[in-house]
Amino acid sequence: MLSRRALLAGGAAVAALPVDARAQDLSAAASSGVAAWPTQPIRLVVPFAPGGTTDLVARMLAQGLQDRLGQPFIIENRPGAGATVGSQQVAQAAPDCHTLLMSNIASHGIAPTLYRTLRYDAVKDFTHVALVVSNPSVFVANPRFAGPTLADVARLSREAPRGIDIASSGSGSSNHLLIVQFGQAANARVNHVPYRGAGPAMTDVIAGVVPLMSDSLPSAAGHIRQGSVRAVAMASAERHPAFPEVPTFREQGIDLVSDSWFGLSGPAGMPPAVVQRLSQSTLAVLAEPGLRIRFTELGGTPGALSPSGYTEFVRAEVARWAPVVRASGAEVG
């Protein structure tokens, strides 16, 4: 049963390829010793709980990769410890190219500085394949809050006897770090109010318990569209195509850009031929118009980085967040 299905799928794939491409593929496979990857279902480890942005992005990507590579992609949610539990498991997996990871800003950008005892190296212990999507953080406010711009927020924070409250989805998250950066850059007196995830924090912002929140655009997008909160500033380099009316931090005179990102990675030592094929398939999936529209609606920008480009990107992110994490005072033993 299984062998018949595999044969059929294999046959279809071979038939569809032009002759020279097939020859190329075969020689590549022969030289690297990975004949006809993938030969079995691929586990895609999502180091977050199901239902979140990373999970949704992973599922959409998995669907596309499955159609292109002819093997099912199985999403495995392994949440825990700021996405480091799942990441560590993939770092230790065999580089047989059947275990992949949704690498992300938490586990591969911030954790290397935040966690004192992290058991993996975000760059060396992985084969980074492709940047999948990045999305900006955004400051949102309760609609009744009297400060339409960042300058107002900073002014009000200095006028209030004990500063201004800003909520985030958690201590040590990129959204928290943006609050720290904003406090420094705008000379604002901010009082960080951490929550257990974006949902409860958003509830309190809508209710007016906390006037402001630093959130990732995908989780805030719906609430902004519905008017239950007001977007104050987008932490992207340029205005976001889905929210062209929301000014950026830079436009408001505060030079801050904060994107959270997700990418596709595997354990260190994956054969270059497989990495190449996976990277090309991923880029092709990300170029599909249907997926691009969905990602943009979610508030994200599809990535377009080569394996070496993504590796450099991760390295740069680790270096970039290190001083910010230290300034925030957050540290996990």
Partner: peptide
């Protein structure tokens, strides 16, 4: 939740949540 510090986890990452 407030400080991000680990409590009673004895360095076991699985206990951090």
């Amino acid at each position: 939740v407030q400080t991000g510090q680990q409590r009673f986890t004895f360095g076991v990452p699985e206990l951090s949540d």
